[in-house]
Design a protein around this nucleic acid. Structure first.
Length: 929
RNA sequence: GGGUGGUUAGCUCAGUUGGUUAGAGCGCAGCAUUGACAUUGCUGAGGUCGUUGGUUCGAUUCCAAUAUCACCCACCA
């Protein structure tokens, strides 16, 4: 019974149906796979926790790439018999989501200050509604990509289970003294009314002016600044201790009465600091401890030397001058700058202004320029050492003391975590070296509220007085009694996503416990799948996220969160620009799936790029892979027409001809290579090799030969089964559809076993059924002869359909060519083919040399002696320098003595072949006359 | 200022431990239309592997310098 497929593959007709069927089968869930015998309870496990997309909008190409890569890994391992878990989820993305909803309410619902107008409860309702919708959209889109995620385990960074995890870790860290409250200069977004961590800043360059002036006429040193308004908060001037100009002033304090007519007085102390560049500006820096993190560092340094220079906050959280700014209080910062400048000019204190390029930090979520403000916030101390009591890490013993920073280094340095591509390990270490304490509190509403309760009232929190510490309670639940009020701040979203690799492996909140000062996750999933096998994500969140997962897991469990980190690049447009809505150069994955199919979209993101490098994507590229999808469909269509009764249990097919032997040999090598490449995360090359085999070897050569030789049912069946399985991880939809067309709707390719290489067995079969003297390499002789004949025909403008006569003087290749005479004849479109051991070129034939045989073609009327002359001379011209080169090499005693024998042998063979060819060409040239 | 990566065909990129007449896809040129597939087939053109030195019998590959581009981090007071 022969099956016949439709003439072209139309993905839109099948994809949704197929995904639904996969989902219904339950095989995305490893428990179902075990129950149904797809893998064993004791099989090696393979787990990936999906980097949770933010619930801020829709899927973009970056997500699509991530899904495609992970799905290949997961499907391949599932088919290879591993107990495979791919766990999905979404991220509440605190600031990102909140700011998006705020913007939406302003733009679409006409509110002016949504948070104030709606109040916390109603506003959060709006955010949750938005998050829910966004979540549903993203999940739908993820399914469109064909991602074989286990939806029964879906997690959310803000659900009950993850909440318990967050609170438990926070509490333990607090108890260990790693989480602390500190008064620091932090990054403040006026627009967002919240802090930002250092990593959340985006630096942009912009033109600015730098102003040079003096505080007053008596002050001995001029200073320069781009922000004159902050000078109202100056408490010192720093100079380089080596600077001869200013050395004499160091330690002196100057009082500036009524600075810039502000009605306030400044006390400026001259301090020394090596970081001051003598050559830059005036070589002196006005120090504003309250509004510059660098100046704040100087302030702390002076303080530690017993030198209290003071700190004055002259800018408030609302971006206006504070009441410490005297006359300027209440003014917008920029307005104040103008007025201060005007005043300096008026009082003849102003010296000059120059153009400069300023690099300012902006909030990546709110977009405004960050203001540095001193505040009490919660921090994670990355340098404090703590006692390890649960280590599974290399080079870390229980009882030892380590800091979080050190643990983060050790796991990667010891090789326990491997980062691919390797170069990112250096980047990672470099980042850790510069790591400062992590500010984790945010003044927004959406997120995990900090699990800290204060006894009396919230104002205490901002004072940071030691006496009040005892009135703080930290726990996973609210303390008993009613005079406790919880901290209103929420946690940085990366705190909860840092726990992702283990928080997702708990199936209920009760499974997360703190016992004997250790956090325990008491679940089968945790025992089965932690540490996870691979973390696959974009390199852009190496610091944000990957590093923080390492921090959180080494701390919580003394273990690694994952064995391998695989970093992919960013998806860019065809010109290499970052895709962004404002540039209008985005390619919507959903549109591409609609137009070209999910398989083509996946391939375009998998093939043609290397790990860690950005990938350029264009619609043409996707269209190209759509063509290939269809090609595979048609290859299958043709093969099915030639298979008597398809079977899925063919172990090794019988081979009869050289071509059979060749294709099975190549397929067998492909199996080995494919497995190796996928295990090494070289998906691009794996895909290319598959394509090369499928298109260039199978379709262009073997199937053409199959038409000639005929009777290939079993072998075609075997090849088809194999390539469908190999391709399945890359293009799950089309392969599944073909599989079900062949084997019926109750068969499912998703959980078929990945074929293993059986080259040894195949070789045995070869010796039984194929002519013994056939060597695999002989096939390329056939190919080259056929290509040569086609080429000479084409050069001489013989129409492809016109049949001609050919005589081959074959030498020792006579029997090989005789055995494959029909193949040569049909594939090079010959009317008559005669093969002799030795034969001279007949009159009116044209001649060429290939693979050591001479080929004579009868062009009769088309033969042009002059053109022939030129062609042969050209060929000789080409081969002469080649021979000369080889001869020189072999005459070089150093080469012959030093190079390995094998290499010398190869070179000798090359020379012999080339010389043989040259002789034949020269003879042919003579015969032409 | 510190760091990382790139520079190979018109374009996008491979190049696996130093030995290939340096590869692929797309594009381009020529030829072919009821044939599994025009979402196709066949054939072809196109590269002194950024530059300069060095190591080596031999360098696209290793080392150094240099040019240039991109990115990350720090930061200019």
């Amino acid at each position: 019974m022969k099956k016949e497929l439709a003439k072209t593959y139309e993905p839109q007709k099948y994809e949704d149906k197929i995904y639904e069927k996969w989902e219904k089968s339950g095989f995305f869930n490893p428990d179902v796979c075990v129950k149904k015998g797809i893998c064993d309870e004791k099989s090696e496990s393979f787990s990936i926790v999906l980097p949770p997309p933010n619930v801020t909008g829709t899927l973009h190409m970056g997500h699509a790439a991530m899904l495609a890569i992970q799905d290949v890994l997961i499907r391949f391992q599932r088919m290879s018999g591993k107990k495979t878990l791919w766990l999905p989820g979404t991220d509440h993305a605190a600031v990102a989501t909140e700011s998006k909803v705020e913007k939406m309410l302003i733009e679409k619902e006409g509110l002016k200050k949504p948070k104030q107008e709606l109040g916390k409860e109603k506003f959060l309702e709006k955010v949750k509604e938005f998050a829910k919708n966004s979540h549903d959209t993203i999940i739908g889109q993820t399914k469109k990509m064909g991602a074989s995620l286990d939806w029964s385990r879906e997690a959310y960074t803000l659900d009950e289970i993850r909440h318990k995890a967050v609170y438990s870790v926070f509490k333990k860290m607090y108890d260990d003294g790693l989480i602390y409250r500190g008064f620091r200069v932090i990054n403040w977004s006026v627009k967002g009314q919240s802090t930002c961590s250092d990593d959340e800043l985006v630096y942009i360059e912009r033109p600015a002016k730098i102003y040079t002036f003096k505080y007053n006429q008596d002050f001995p040193i001029a200073i320069a600044t781009t922000r004159p308004e902050t000078k109202l908060g100056d408490t010192a001037v720093a100079v380089n201790p080596q600077d001869k100009r200013y050395k004499k002033f160091i330690g002196k304090t100057f009082e500036i009465k009524n600075f810039a007519d502000s009605e306030i007085d400044l006390k400026i102390k001259i301090i020394a600091d090596e970081h001051v560049d003598m050559k830059y500006g005036t070589g002196a820096v006005g120090v504003t401890p309250a509004h510059s993190s660098v100046d704040f560092e100087m302030y702390l340094k002076q303080k530690s030397l017993g030198n209290e220079i003071g700190m004055i906050q002259i800018i408030d959280k609302d971006g206006k001058m504070s009441d410490k700014a005297g006359k300027y209080a209440g003014l917008e910062v920029l307005k104040c700058r103008e007025e201060v400048l005007e005043n300096l000019k008026k009082n003849n204190l102003f010296i000059k202004e120059e153009d400069t390029i300023q690099n300012v930090g902006t909030s990546d979520r709110f977009g405004d320029v960050i203001e540095s403000l001193p505040m009490t916030q919660w921090f994670i101390d990355v340098n404090k050492k703590f006692k390890i009591n649960n280590s599974k890490l290399k080079n870390v013993k229980n009882g030892d003391n380590f800091s979080l920073k050190e643990l983060m280094q050790i796991t990667v340095k010891s090789g326990q975590i491997k980062i691919i591509p390797e170069q990112f390990e250096k980047v990672y270490f470099n980042w850790i070296d510069n790591l400062k304490d992590w500010c984790i509190s945010r003044q927004i509403w959406f997120g995990h509220q900090i699990p800290v309760w204060y006894k009396t009232n919230l104002k205490l929190k901002m004072k940071n007085s030691k006496d009040e510490e005892k009135d703080i309670y930290v726990g996973t639940e609210a303390p008993k009694g009613n005079n406790w009020i919880q901290d209103t701040d929420t946690l940085d979203t990366w705190f909860s996503s840092g726990l992702w690799t283990f928080s997702t492996l708990a199936n209920s909140a009760d499974q997360i416990k703190i016992e004997n000062e250790k956090i325990i996750i008491d679940s089968e999933d945790f025992r089965n799948f932690h540490p996870t096998t691979v973390m696959e994500t974009g390199y852009d969140i190496l610091f944000f996220w990957v590093a923080r997962m390492i921090l959180m897991t080494t701390y919580t469990f003394g273990d690694i969160p994952f064995k391998t980190v695989y970093l992919h690049g960013l998806v860019r447009d065809e010109k290499g620009k970052k895709m962004s809505k404002s540039l209008g150069n985005t390619i919507d994955p959903l549109q591409m799936i609609e137009k070209y199919g999910a398989d083509a979209t996946r391939l375009s993101l998998l093939i043609g790029n290397t790990p860690g490098n950005d990938m350029k994507l264009s619609e043409e590229k996707i269209a190209g892979f759509r063509n290939f999808t269809n090609k595979l469909w048609n290859i299958s269509r043709f093969m099915l027409l030639n298979i008597d009764e398809p079977k899925n249990d063919i172990v090794i097919p019988k081979t009869k001809t050289l071509a059979d032997k060749w294709i099975l040999n190549n397929l067998s090598n492909l199996l080995t290579e494919n497995e190796k490449l996928i295990n090494n995360f070289n998906l691009s090359l794996a895909g290319e090799k598959l394509r090369d085999f499928t298109w260039n070897e199978l379709a262009d050569w073997y199937l053409e030969i199959a038409k000639i030789e005929g009777d290939k049912s079993e072998i075609l069946n075997y090849i088809l089964n194999t390539i469908l399985k190999l391709w399945h991880p890359f293009m799950p939809f089309v392969t599944e559809e073909i599989w079900q067309e062949i084997y019926g709707e109750n068969k499912i390719l998703l959980v078929e076993k990945m074929p293993k290489n059986k080259l040894e067995k195949i070789k045995k079969i070869f010796s039984l059924f194929t002519k013994k003297q056939d060597k695999i390499e002989d096939f390329s002789v056939l190919q080259n002869i056929i290509i040569k004949i086609r080429s000479v025909r084409s050069e001489n403008k013989i129409e492809p359909v016109k049949k001609i006569d050919v005589i081959i003087s074959a030498g020792n290749k006579k029997s090989l060519l005789e055995n494959n005479k029909e193949v040569i004849k049909v594939l090079s479109r010959l009317e008559k083919l005669e093969i002799f051991e030795k034969m001279d070129k007949p009159e009116k034939y044209t001649a060429c040399v290939e693979s050591g045989v001479e080929i004579f073609l009868d062009f009769s009327s088309n033969l042009n002696k002059e053109k022939e002359n030129i062609r042969l001379k050209l060929e000789i011209e080409k081969i002469n320098p080649y021979i000369k080169n080889l001869q020189e090499k072999l005459n070089n005693k150093n080469f012959v003595d030093n190079a390995p024998e094998k290499v010398v042998e190869i070179e000798k063979n090359k020379l012999a072949e080339a010389q043989d060819k040259l002789n034949k060409l020269q003879k042919q040239l003579e015969n032409l006359k």
